[in-house]
Amino acid sequence: MHEIIEFLDVSKRFGDVAVFEHLDLAIGTGRVTALVGASGSGKSTLLQMINGVLVPDDGRVEVFGDPVPDAHHSAFRRRIGYAVQGTGLFPHLRIDANIGLLGKLERWSALELDGRIDELMTLMDLDPELRNRYPHELSGGQQQRVGICRAMLLRPEILLLDEPFSGVDPLTRDEIHERFGELMRVEPATVVLVTHDMHEAVRLASELVVLEAGRVLQAGGVNEVVEQPANAAVARLVERVHGVH
């Protein structure tokens, strides 16, 4: 059976530098998969090939059982939520407009849109008073929650998260993790999470893909990777988690 996201013999270069060569990878439907690795390992590139923001030079990426479209992506991409590092909130839009933008473009009724925004903000524990603020008036943690709300607006089947929880203090991050876990219980989706933080990966994901310099060192269930690291490099990454445990 096909998985919801599959990389088939994918190669990707930036100029002369090959990021991936002949990569094969499947990401399981309905699970939370974390792509982990140091910066430069290619994890963010991999993520952006899923919604077609980046296009492979060779091979193909299949999502929902079909190749990622070359053009007219918008309908395809609206089935995929997207939240990024530094939140990427639009500075000229208030919080409700940021979260509700895609709903407006989908011509939802004001009532429906309002209700959905309220629902998401409640799930992510955001004070309703924040609706009329601009992004810069919110704390970093609040902005990250808004970013998640925006990505979830259209109830996407896939949610792509590109280090969306980085840059906040550990206490706040733990709270956001908890809220995110709650959201995923209420509105399950296939989640691909890019992070360099092994704690975060272990906490949120059920599957791990460990990357180094464009190679997949190990892919499997979290327990499998943690208990039986495939090599020394994976072991080093995992040790950090054990150290805390």
């Binding site: 918008s74 991409r77 609206r78 939520g81 530094g86 990427g88 639009f90 839009l93 895609l102």
Partner: peptide, 23 residues
């Protein structure tokens, strides 16, 4: 980053222009 997000979340070219780039 904002351009990438606008494209990545599924806005058409004209929607990106009207709702993100021009504002």
């Amino acid at each position: 980053l904002l351009k990438r997000v606008a494209a990545g979340m599924g806005m058409t070219q004209s929607e990106q222009l009207r709702h993100v780039h021009l504002p």
